[in-house]
């Protein structure tokens, strides 16, 4: 999955939470800009799990942008892919 597909999936999940698509950009911060609370962060993680089958950790001491979330998505997908090739 490339970055744009990961971003499309993430934006669809956020839009499903009722966030206007026009407010979603690569440098948008989850907490500061979107004002997501902990339950909404959980919903994003559950959405990623259901749609992509991956577990992405979104909690942390620092706020993260949508682009950084996509980086984490790709890192998990890559790790999963590599582990699948190990017999």
């Amino acid at each position: 999955m490339d970055t744009s597909k990961a971003m499309d999936t993430l934006k669809a999940i956020l839009a499903d939470l009722g966030i206007p698509k026009e407010s979603l950009h690569n440098d948008t911060l989850l907490h500061e800009d979107l004002q997501l609370d902990s339950t909404e962060i959980v919903e994003v993680a559950l959405g990623l799990k259901r749609q992509l089958g991956i577990s992405v950790k979104l909690e942390g001491r620092q706020d993260i942008t949508l682009a950084q979330v996509c980086n984490r998505i790709e890192a998990v997908l890559l790790a999963n892919s590599n582990s699948n090739h190990v017999t």
Partner: peptide
């Protein structure tokens, strides 16, 4: 809402 939207396999994340 969370627990009704997702199946048990997905909820295992939480």
């Amino acid at each position: 809402r969370l627990t009704e939207r997702y199946d048990s396999e997905t909820l295992n994340l939480l």
